[in-house]
Structures are given as structure tokens and as C-alpha cells.
């Protein structure tokens, strides 16, 4: 059985890699990008996620390039009000990309995202 979202909130492990995370998720990624770049060694190919957590046994990673679930990219889109939609949730939007990713996990069950997914025209 799955835990309810409320009890999951008590058990999940959220790793905040930077104090700027909340601001970045609120949409100031562009403004903070130079700061984040400065914190990482130049030779790093995959930047460390801004937020990484285990939710219902799945790894969620959010950085300014996108959202990954167990390392697979989740297609993220925006609504006019700034909220987020994904390839998994087209008919419902979420305030942050982390909430969007958790909702995708809820919907996926034990299924994995595909590595390459069709994209909108």
C-alpha cells in the first residue's frame, strides 16, 4: 500500500543543496544562475540537483535544467499563471516543480518514465 501524501510528508527526506533553493523554485533561476555556477567546479558535467528527495521510494531531482525521476527526465510545461504541468499531468497544475514531480510519482505507481518521450509540436 502507498502512504497517504500527509504521512509521506513526515517520512520523506528532503536534501536542500543550497539556501537559494526556495527562491530558485519561485522562478528566479536566471538571476541566481551565476551564483550556482560559481559554487560548482567547472569540470562537473551534471550539476548537483537543487532539491533531491526520496518520495514513495522514488528519487526526485529538481535543478534549473529540469526535473528527473529516478534519473529520467520529466517533461515540464508552464501555465500562464506560472504553475507547472508535466507530461504525466496535463489537466492539473502545481505551484512548484517539486509538487509536480511528486504528483507524477503518485500517478506513475511503480512504472518508470521513458528515457525518450514524444514532445509537443
Amino acid at each position: 500500500m502507498y502512504a497517504t501524501p500527509a504521512s509521506a510528508a513526515l517520512t520523506r527526506r528532503t536534501v536542500l543543496r543550497t539556501a537559494f533553493t526556495a527562491a530558485v523554485l519561485a522562478g528566479t533561476a536566471a538571476a541566481l544562475a551565476p551564483v550556482l555556477r560559481a559554487r560548482r567546479p567547472r569540470q562537473t558535467l551534471t550539476p548537483a540537483p537543487l532539491v533531491e528527495e526520496t518520495y514513495r521510494g522514488r528519487n526526485i531531482a529538481v535543478d534549473h535544467a529540469g526535473v528527473r525521476i529516478d534519473g529520467r527526465p520529466l517533461h515540464v510545461m508552464r501555465r500562464a499563471d506560472g504553475s507547472y504541468l508535466s507530461g504525466i499531468n496535463h489537466f492539473q497544475s502545481f505551484g512548484t516543480r517539486l509538487e509536480l514531480a511528486r504528483a507524477a510519482v503518485d500517478e506513475l505507481g511503480t512504472t518508470q518514465l521513458a528515457f525518450a518521450a514524444p514532445h509537443h509540436g
Binding site: 500500500m1 517533461h75 504525466i88 506513475l108 505507481g109 511503480t110 521513458a114 518521450a117 514524444p118
Partner: peptide
């Protein structure tokens, strides 16, 4: 409805086990 876990539809003509409903345009591995 789908079964617990992978949410796979198990009954009716569109159940994968019937052999006639393979998902080819999807964004998951299902």
C-alpha cells in the same frame, strides 16, 4: 481499473494480456 503497483488494466478488451492493446505512444515504459 488498474491493479495496484503498476496500474495495469487487467480486464476487458484493452487489457494487455489479451494481446491486442500495446501502448506505443507513451511517455512511460509501460
Amino acid at each position: 481499473t488498474g491493479r495496484e503497483g503498476d496500474r495495469r488494466v487487467m480486464t476487458g478488451p484493452f487489457a494487455h494480456e489479451k494481446g491486442n492493446w500495446e501502448i506505443t505512444v507513451g511517455i512511460t515504459e509501460a
